[in-house]
Structure formats: C-alpha cells, structure tokens
Design a protein around this nucleic acid. Structure first.
Lengths: 334, 334
DNA sequence: CTGAAAGCGCTAACAT
DNA sequence: ATGTTAGCGCTTTCAG
C-alpha cells in the first residue's frame, strides 16, 4: 500500500510569479484587480496559476488588507425554525459577495450574546444580529465598534431590517371579523420581543376600529407546549378565534384544541404568524407570511455597504410587509 | 452632538511590548506559551495587555502558524430540523476548544457541496461533513486533502460518526409485534441515503425474525407532503402499522390519516425516527431517538484530534446507539 | 528566561 | 501596464 504523502503545501504567489515570468504584484493584481492589467497578461498568469493549483491565501490577504472576508450571523437559537431561512439567505448572499459567514448561536442568553459579539468583533468584518435580546444601550454600543445590522430589532441609529407583521395581522383581523367573529384572543409571545409588541398592537388597534372585542393573553414562550396551554386560556376567555404570536404557539393551540375535542375551524378559528411550519400542521394553518429570507438578504446587503464604507448613513430602517395566507384553520364563527 | 470618532485601531503586540518594557517575543510568548516565561513577567505583561485592551490578531497568528483556528460544519439543509442539534453541539464544542465554526449549507446539491468543500479547504483547519450527498470517491479524495470527519456517512478509511438507528428500529418492531401487529409498512426515505438503507434493513430483518409481514414503500423525499401521500400507500398495502424513515414523513402520515378519518393509534399505528419534532405532533409521536447532538460533539472531538496530528489513525468509526421513545401514536392492532 | 531578526503570503504605495 | 519595496501582526529559530 502506498504511504500517504504529507499534505503538499500550497503554491504561493511567488512561485506563480516565477513560473509566469512576472512580478508578484502582477500575480496579486490578477486576483484582486484584473482590470488594471493587459488582458493577455491576465490570461497567461491565470493559466499558469490554475495549472499550479494556486489559490490566494486568505489569512495573508486579510493581514495585508485588514479585511477578513467574513461576516457573522448571530441568532438566539438555530433550532428555532424561524431562523434558518434568514440564515440561509444571508449566507448565500454573503457568499455571492465573496464573504464567508460564521454562525453564532446565543442560546437565547443575553450574556452569551454579548460574549459572542465581543469574540466576533476581531474575527469578522461585521455582524448581522437577528432578534437580539440585548438591552438597547448594549446594542448601540456594539454598533459604535463596527459594522452591525439588526434584524427584527428596532434601535434608532442602528441600521435595521424589520419583518413587519402588522399588515398581515390587520388582514387577519379583517378576515376573522368578516367571518363573523366578535371576540378574539391574542396569544402573546415573549414579553421583551419587539415583534410581539408590534403584532399585539396591530391586532388591538384593528379590533378596536372594527368593534371586535379582544382579550390579550399573558406572555408565552413561543413553543408547542405553551401553545397547548394557551388553548385553555382562549376557551376560558370566551373567544371564538385566536391569533397567536407565532406558528409554534398556533400549532400548540391546535393540539390543545384537539385534546379537548374542540373542532378547528368548526368551533374556534386559529391564526399563526411567520408561515414557518404552517403547511406541516393538520389542518394546514392559516398564518401571516413575513418575508424572512428577504430580511436576511437585505441585512447582508446593508452590512456589506457599511463594510465598504464605514461612514455611511447609520439610520436606515427597512420594513418588509407581510400578508395573510389563508389555509384551513379559520372558518365562520359558530 | 459629538461626532463619532473613526474606529480606533486595536493595539498591537508592539505597543504592549513597549508599554511593558519587554520585547515583542515576550509578549507573544505570554499569549502562546506562557510556561516558558517567569511568572512575574507573565503577570506583568498580562496586566498591561488587558489595560490596553490588547487581543491577539487572529489573521496574523494564522499567517504565522498556518493554523486558522476555524473549522467548518457542512450540512445539506440548515432548515431541516435534523441538523440544528448537531450543528449547535459541534459549534459549542469547537468554541470551547478555541475554534470558531463556519456553517456551510449545500442546499442538498452535490455540486454545491463539492464547491463549498473546495472553498472551505483554504479557510478552515478541517471540516465536519454531515450527511454528505457526494459519491464515495469524492469524499475519499477530499479526505486526502485535509482533516475531515463524516457524520452519518459510512466511508471506509474516513473517520466517521454514525447515528445508529438500527437498535431503535428493532425495538420499534418488537413493540409493534407485541401490540399484535402482523403486517407492517416501512416508509422509505431518499434512495441514496445511508440512514435509509440501515433503517430499512433493520426493520426487514427483525420482522422476518418475528414472522411479521413487511411492505417496503417506495422512496420518499423526507417531508410532510410525501408523508401525507404515504398514508394512502400504507392503507393500500393493508398494513396496520407503519415505521417511517423520519419524523417529517411520520408527521405527514399522521396528517394523511386524519384527512381520511383513520384514527391513530386506534386503527393504525405510526412510528417516526429522529425524535426531532415528535412532541409537536398530535397525538405526540412514538419515535426512535438518536443521539444527534452527541454526534456533533464527537465529530468535533475527532476532527480536532486530526487537526493536531495529521497522521492519526484514519479509520475510526463510532456508532451511537438509538432507542425507542414511546408516546401516543402506537396502540393495539385492530 | 528573554531579545533580535527573519519571515508567513499577500497588498499597496511609489516608481518606471 | 508592470515592477520594487515595504510592511500587515504575529511566531519562531537562534543567540545570549
């Protein structure tokens, strides 16, 4: 059996230069700003380089330019199905722009979040911070120290992308009212969540405008179990329809209703938010679809802008509209 | 309003050296091999360094040592709930070992996977490749070029961690047989999947041993819709129980049964695999729990071993046993 | 135990 | 359009 050779060290710019009969700067330029070179040189050097299997060394380039070629995407919990689409989009877009992404998971813990942010500061050119759980002041301070774009967190002076669930929520209320519902419950999400406040407010205001009674239930951790518990609360409130902070809660509520033998949408109607697992429930969940993937893409766009130009206008705020997706968990009031 | 100062550049080893009245090598050693120095020197320099807010520059160190301090975790689809636990565990463990992680998403596309692997080769010290869709030859070639650990892919000569669903599958068959089921369907997953083959085989063999009839259904994409479709196939086969390749399929099958008014577990029993969303279904899904998080942790362990010592023993194969978790979708045969 | 000096591989003025 | 020459910030022999 042939013994494995020790891994061959990669060819450097120097050996390519020698082989091509040009200077190292020329080779360097071929890979960074080819437009400054004669086409023939570019072609020639490229050919030699590929033949030798040359690839620019990342760390060396980083050291020279001060650009790491890497951004971070930080989320509270990668296992929460809300995040993968934004991560994925962010990643793909960054990659297209020549940047790698590191993913950070804060485990929903503000202390870990802060820690991570500090560590990442030296390893990345900038960070996309999704659904930050940090106090506003901390976010602002971090934004002072380097390029930072927020997703679903509204801090003035820090560039941010917001998935705006309000339009969808209003549609949901309209839809329910049109079906004859006169009393509606809102199943709240985490108390400190920007999104929750936004969604709740949209529901309340629209209900008020339409003369529909609304009961706001206590804050809930956005998971299945809490949703299950919420089913009882909805029933106790005497509501005939409920809008939940998110799909996980809505799905839990569905299960809770099933346990109690309450028919959905026959006896009560349920609406979710985020459209993240809507099609996996039974019956398929009527929900508010937010453009989360687009949020990831836009966040990276914005971030890369700031990486290029540290002194761009910080106070940018993008709102991404949402809309109601009708499926099978809403029906006429009993 | 005070104008924001341009970002202050981080202090280098040089300024720390000057401030501490020592040479740069000493400062360097304080951060890399402090045991070579007098305790008092270490203490003194450390103090100065923290006061100045000095942090070793990553890229510079990488250039010098050839160690990037970074590993990659590559998965087919970050949105597939099977992966987050392994990613999360891998990440946490790597971080503890002083390594950052980049996450790669191949979008289930072998071409993208290969591409990504090439790009990552120069940016990381090694990669954990989860559920690779690449041909065996390609995997082997990549393993020659640098530290690589596989998860849920069994290629001889490449270190690998396998979540072994066979024990759990056997338990499932035993469980169903004990409940009086005599005809059982296996809902197959992707045709090229190592896991599917393993699971199917375990089911078939155990059924044969027990004298239980088994129908193997066609390959399915592991998602909800296909599971829904599978419900009809299970019924058509005349089976009174089904074991699905994974939880997504099982959950879909649940929905499919509900649509047809077939009671679970009254009329048919359903078992999933992976225990990834089991508790979010209604009724809660009986499923095979695999130790996926542990797989992530172990993979990183193994990988870091190879990063330290490029010539360790390549042919390591870890099997992580699984077991059946009883919940509410299995019951006596009708 | 500590210092001096030579790079690691690449880019960026500055020349030409 | 291309070559020359310094570094980027850190580690690492080699001396002392």
């Amino acid at each position: 059996m042939a013994r494995r050779e020790g891994r061959q060290k990669a060819p450097t710019i120097k050996v390519v230069a020698a082989a091509a009969g040009v200077s190292t700067s020329t080779v360097s330029r071929v890979f960074s700003r080819p437009h400054l070179l004669k086409e023939s040189t570019v072609a020639h050097v490229t050919e030699i380089a590929t033949r030798l299997g040359y690839v620019p060394h990342h760390a060396a380039r980083a050291l020279s330019t001060g650009r790491l070629g890497m951004i971070a995407v930080v989320v509270p919990d990668i296992a929460n199905p809300f995040f993968p689409p934004v991560i994925r989009a962010a990643q793909a877009h960054a990659f297209a722009g020549g940047f790698s992404t590191v993913l950070g998971d804060t485990d929903e813990d503000p202390a870990k979040e802060l820690d991570l942010l500090v560590k990442l500061e030296q390893r990345t050119d900038g960070v996309v911070l999704v659904s930050s759980r940090l106090p506003e002041q901390a976010v602002r301070e971090r934004a002072e120290r380097g390029p930072l774009v927020l997703v679903n967190r509204d801090v003035a002076g820090v560039p941010r992308i917001l998935v705006d669930s309000a339009p969808g929520m209003r549609e949901a209320v309209d839809h329910l009212a049109a079906l004859g519902h006169r009393h509606l419950a809102y199943v709240s999400g985490p108390a400190s969540s920007w999104s929750d406040e936004q969604r709740r407010r949209a529901v309340q205001e629209r209900c008020a405008a339409l003369g529909v009674t609304t009961t706001v239930l206590r804050p809930h951790r956005p998971d299945h179990d809490e949703g299950r518990a919420a089913a009882a609360e909805i029933l106790a409130a005497g509501a005939t329809a409920a809008i939940a902070f998110d799909d996980a809660l809505a799905q839990g509520a569905l299960a809770g209703m099933a346990e109690r033998g309450v028919a959905v949408p026959g006896e009560v109607s349920i609406v979710g938010c985020d459209d993240i697992l809507a099609v996996r429930t039974y019956p398929p969940l009527t929900t508010v679809h937010g453009r989360t993937a687009e949020a990831g893409r836009l966040a990276v766009d914005l971030l890369l802008e700031f990486v290029e130009d540290h002194d761009g206008d910080r106070d940018r705020r993008h709102l991404l509209p949402s809309s109601l997706v009708l499926r099978a968990t809403t029906g006429r009031a009993p």
